[in-house]
């Protein structure tokens, strides 16, 4: 195990975890506002923090990933911060919140994914601050009808009980569970009926995440149903099964499919990179004599390929990578023709 340990990543992950613990201590006012019932979730979060930061740092050290990461930030801070910042905002709204690119892959797929994504993001936004003790609720002293919300120990709002607003706030996790269940149903249907998906899907990569999301959502809803309609008779069972499923989710997050939630924002960097590329000089294919990509991207791919041990340098000093995909295909066909001509027969 220690032979494959990435020391740099382990150090970064350890620092991030210490910072998280410190922020929990500060945010919960030295655990005064921490809910002891959530202690198992807290340890799951702390492990997930270490695992996610470790994997992210290992991932960043790969030559192509590091090049994009470094290039993206460099572009962002070299005089065009406002323009690129606006590009990021647009991309975030259209592609991340609106999930346009997934909708383009299929309407039902896009809708299902959007329900799951919004449900999960809403649940994250509620659960993590609650588990960390950053947010807590309490009855306003001197009465039983007004509730108060505290963030980092500071009161930010109060609301009367038994109102629509109270129902919306108290049932936040139930709303997210309903969104996730609806999304999971759509995605499961797709995985059961789409021949292309059936051919390439795997249990651990595609079904397990859906089953886990479903289990988390159903057990979460179960807690509410239990205390509303069953007088809390099954509370212990519901609370424990829900905790198990959520902690499994947290422990698996750095390793499995859910890691894409962390990895996906890299697409924002690509949006800046592409915009900068389009505004700069363009690469022209020597075969088609047409522009096919930004010169910056072609140069970066050449450098990354070389760093990875691929050498496409030709006798004439050019690199094979300087050709467009169409140009590359034509070069291969021409070389094949030449070999056939040399052998004296075009067919054989």
């Amino acid at each position: 195990m220690f032979n494959t340990l990435n020391l740099r990543a382990a150090l970064v992950a350890a620092v991030a975890t210490v910072l998280l613990v410190a922020s929990i201590l500060i945010g919960s006012r030295n655990l005064t506002n921490f809910d002891p019932a959530l202690v198992a979730y807290l340890f799951g979060c702390i492990f997930a923090c270490f695992g996610i930061v470790y994997r992210y740092t290992v991932w960043l050290q790969r030559p192509p990933t590091w090049r994009y990461f470094a290039r993206g930030w460099k572009l962002f801070f070299t005089g065009r911060t406002i323009a690129y910042g606006w590009e990021l905002v647009k991309h975030f709204i259209v592609q991340f919140l609106g999930q346009k690119f997934i909708r383009n892959r299929g309407k039902a797929r896009g809708f299902g994914h959007m329900l799951m994504a919004w449900g999960c993001l809403l649940a994250f936004a509620i659960t993590f601050p609650l588990v960390f003790g950053w947010i807590h609720f309490g009855l306003k002293p001197g009465g039983i009808n007004i509730y108060e919300i505290f963030v980092f120990g500071f009161k930010i709002m109060e609301f009367p009980l038994h109102t629509v607003l109270a129902e919306i706030i108290f049932n936040g996790l139930n709303w997210s569970a309903i969104l996730v269940i609806a999304g999971v149903m759509i995605m499961m249907r797709r995985r059961l009926t789409h021949a292309g998906q059936i051919a390439i899907q795997t249990f651990e990569g595609d079904w397990l995440p859906l089953l886990l999301l479903l289990a988390i959502s159903l057990t979460g809803l179960g807690i509410s149903l239990d205390y509303k309609f069953m007088e809390g008779k099954a509370h212990q069972f519901m609370a424990i099964t829900h905790a198990i499923t959520v902690i499994l989710f947290l422990l698996w997050m750095p390793f499995g499919k859910f890691y894409h939630i962390i990895q996906r924002p890299a697409q924002l960097g690509i949006a800046i990179y592409r915009r900068a590329g389009a505004e700069g000089p363009q690469a022209v294919c020597p075969h088609t004599t047409k522009e096919f990509d930004s010169q910056m991207h072609v140069d970066d791919v050449k450098a990354v390929a070389a760093e990875l041990g691929f050498n496409y340098a030709r006798k004439d000093g050019k690199s094979h990578i300087e050709y467009s995909p169409q140009g590359k295909r034509a070069l291969l066909a021409k070389a094949h023709l030449k070999a056939r001509q040399k052998a004296g027969s075009l067919f054989g």
Binding site: F101, H260, Q263, V304, A305, P325, G327, K328, L332
Partner: peptide, 17 residues
């Protein structure tokens, strides 16, 4: 599909286009 960030590195690097 969950991971691809559409950077096109593969498009430019593939020697077969």
């Amino acid at each position: 599909t969950a991971r691809c960030i559409a950077c096109s590195n593969c498009v430019q690097a593939c020697p077969f286009g």
